[in-house]
Computed example of a mutant assay.
Amino acid sequence: MKLPRARRRLYLMRHGSVDYFLPDGTPVAPDSVPLNAEGERQADAAGQLFAQCGVRFDRVLVSGLPRTVQTAQRVLSASGQALTLDHEAALQEIRGGRLADIPADQVEQAFLGAFQGRGGSETEQQRFLGGESIGELLDRVLPAFDAWCARDDWQCLLLVLHGGVNRALLSTALAGQRAFFGRLEQQPACINVLDIGLGDEAVVRAVNLAPTQWLHEQERYTTMEKVLAQYLRLPP
């Protein structure tokens, strides 16, 4: 028996923590929201972990939104690496609609519904905050990701993307076909580890590793449940 050619390594991160709402409840434009202090700490911790493990990247890909750019920059700085960031707009987060257009009795479903499905066509029809559907997200994200996997200019690739996008990529890798498992939680600045082989083969080695709390000991709510609470201005 001959072993297959060694697979290439892909580290898939989510951006660090951000505040989508100001203390008075004013929403911050998702295309411009920056990392908060905790998000900076999380990104630094991830970079330090890569350094401790001797991980060196050939390329670093971000969606281009500030929160992914800032996270990647801090990861590189903390890991002692200097690389130019590649941007891929097709890998930006699932796009919501206008919060003001969502009826009060549909707010919870608008925030959480897209991430509660079990996969399949019904899940693909779910819309996030009245905007883009899961199916539309998959339509733009999967081809862009496949194009990067087909490139031959990297052996170790860091992607810093978003919770919804990461779910799409991880779900498809786990299922071996187009899929979206909304209940795959993605902590801020978490690290997922995949090995990419020939064609569309992918081996998922680790999911949702959070460098600042390995056992998720402080967590009982999902990221989107926390964002909903911020929008409703509920106490923590």
Rank of each mutant, 00 (worst) to 15 (best):
L161F: 11
R151D: 01
H162P: 13
D152W: 03
V141N: 02
A173K: 01
E108R: 14
A104F: 06
L112E: 13
R127V: 00
V141W: 01
L138F: 04
A114D: 00
N166D: 09
P143G: 00
Q155E: 15
V141Q: 01
A150N: 03
W148D: 03
P143L: 01
G163Q: 04
L157Q: 08
D105P: 12
D139R: 09
S133N: 05
P103R: 09
G163D: 01
F115S: 03
A150P: 00
R140T: 06
G135S: 01
W154P: 10
T172P: 13
V160C: 13
E108W: 09
L138H: 02
V165Y: 05
D139N: 06
A147P: 02
L112D: 09
G119H: 14
L142D: 02
H162C: 08
L170E: 04
L138E: 04
S171T: 04
T172E: 05
E122Q: 15
Q106E: 14
R118H: 15
R140P: 07
Q125P: 13
L129A: 03
F145K: 01
W148S: 06
L112M: 15
A114V: 02
G120T: 13
Q126S: 14
L169M: 09
G135W: 02
S171R: 03
L169V: 15
L129G: 00
G120Q: 14
R127H: 08
W148K: 04
G163V: 08
A168N: 05
Q116W: 10
L159H: 04
E124D: 14
W154M: 12
D153W: 13
R140V: 03
V165M: 07
R140Q: 05
W154K: 12
S121P: 11
E108S: 12
